[in-house]
Amino acid sequence: MDDLYDFQESFSYKLVKSETTSVIPSSVRKFQINFNFSFELDVSEWILSEDDESQLVSQSHHPVVDCLVSMSSAQFSSFEESQKYMEEKLTTTSSGLSRLKSSNRRELVDYALREAGKYTAGGGAHRVLNLHFDVLLEHEYIYLRDISNYDESTRHMVPAEDSSIDHALKTVEYSLDIPEMNCSVCLESLSGDDYYREELLSMPCAHIFHGDCIKKWLRTSHYCPLCRFEIPID
């Protein structure tokens, strides 16, 4: 097995769009700010040779997931209170933003609130402010290997055998703890809704995923997406 040499995480965000309106929707009695976050996760795996040359082995892009946090004028009037409110929302959301480190989440929240403050400081006539942010989280896994011995048959992202997948995955019963968890493959909530819940499956390492998500993942890579637990490949 390749040795994990290093793990690098990069985090970026930016305000991409702002919209204001003086028309008050029936659901909005007073001034309201809508923070729209579009979150995406990119994962890449690299092989590092003895001469410190790196080679890209695989790269996966997870679908963009959106998250909306709405805030009233009363909530926004105190920076500390609005900061706390938004952090709580982003921690419990199923969009994938809950995966961020607490320091990164605080940095994102502070940035979003500062940007909102630029539009509200002048006391404009608008009643609804819509701010759209792009958030990107990049994970890089770097492994040690002699590239001279590297070929397609020893590629890190080799799929698990179908028989091994069926044997390794176990059905998980829905419980009250599930709503706080996200599938690390699609980044969506594991809980579903009252009318439809996807099958939940557990790896031998005890990590839980949507059944279709983890089966599709293991047909590409025989490693657990979270802890790199290995499923047999032959």
Rank of each mutant, 00 (worst) to 15 (best):
Ser163Lys: 09
Cys224Arg: 04
Gln83Glu: 13
Ser153Cys: 07
Ser58Leu: 00
Leu113Arg: 07
Val158Gln: 15
Leu15Asn: 05
Ser77Thr: 04
Ser49Asn: 15
His207Asn: 07
Phe209Ala: 02
Ile178Arg: 09
Asp193Gln: 04
Arg228Met: 07
Ser94Gly: 14
Asp193Phe: 03
Ser73Thr: 07
Ser73Met: 12
Arg105Pro: 06
Val185Ala: 01
Arg105Leu: 07
Ile24Asp: 08
His62Ala: 09
Asp66Cys: 09
Tyr150Ser: 09
Val23Asn: 10
His139Phe: 14
Thr20Trp: 05
Lys216Pro: 03
His132Pro: 00
Ile33Lys: 11
Leu108Ile: 01
Met157Gly: 13
Pro25Ile: 03
Glu199Ala: 07
Ala74Asn: 11
Glu188Gln: 15
His210Tyr: 04
His62Pro: 06
Val16Lys: 13
Gly124Pro: 15
Thr91Asn: 13
Asp177Thr: 15
Val28Trp: 03
Glu173Phe: 07
Ser164Lys: 08
Glu138Asn: 08
Glu199His: 02
Gly211Ser: 12
Phe11Leu: 05
Asp146Ala: 12
Ala116Val: 06
Thr93Ser: 11
Ser148Gly: 08
Ala206Leu: 14
Glu138Ile: 10
Glu107Leu: 02
Ser175Gly: 09
Thr91Cys: 05
Tyr195Pro: 00
Leu108Met: 06
Asp52Lys: 14
Leu200Thr: 10
Glu140Asn: 14
Leu137Val: 03
Phe37Ser: 01
His132Tyr: 15
Lys216Leu: 04
Ser221Tyr: 05
His139Gly: 00
Ile165Gly: 08
Ile142Asp: 01
Arg99Met: 14
Thr20Arg: 08
Ala206Glu: 14
Leu169Cys: 03
Phe37Asp: 06
Arg29Glu: 12
Pro225Asp: 09
Asp66Tyr: 12
Asp134His: 11
Ser44Trp: 04
Val69Met: 04
Ser54Val: 13
Glu152His: 11
Cys186Tyr: 04
Leu200Val: 10
Lys215Arg: 15
Ile142Asn: 02
Cys227Val: 00
Leu97Ile: 01
Arg99Ser: 13
Ser175Glu: 10
Tyr150Cys: 11
Gly192His: 03
Trp217Gly: 03
Tyr141Pro: 00
Leu108Tyr: 01
Val16Cys: 09
Tyr195Val: 13
Ile178Lys: 03
His139Glu: 11
Val172Cys: 06
Leu131Glu: 04
Ser60Val: 06
Glu40Val: 05
Ser153Met: 09
Asp212Ile: 11
Lys89Tyr: 02
Ser78Asn: 04
Pro159Asp: 05
Glu173Ile: 06
Leu201Thr: 06
Glu230Leu: 02
Gly124Tyr: 08
Glu50His: 13
Lys89Trp: 04
Ser94Lys: 10
Ser191Leu: 05
Ser44Tyr: 01
Trp46Ser: 04
Phe39Tyr: 15
Gly117Thr: 08
Leu131Trp: 06
Lys118Tyr: 10
Leu90Thr: 03
Arg29Ser: 07
Lys30Ile: 01
Ala160Tyr: 02
His207Ala: 01
Leu169Arg: 08
Phe209Val: 07
Glu173Met: 12
Leu56Ile: 02
Glu9Gln: 15
Ser98Thr: 13
Val28Leu: 03
Ile233Arg: 15
Leu15Gly: 02
Glu140Ser: 15
Phe7His: 05
Lys101Thr: 05
His132Lys: 06
Leu100Ser: 03
Ser191Asp: 15
Pro204Glu: 08
Phe7Trp: 02
Asp110Glu: 12
Leu97Asn: 08
Leu4Ser: 05
Tyr143Val: 11
Glu107Val: 02
Tyr196Val: 11
Met157Tyr: 13
Arg29Tyr: 10
Thr154Val: 15
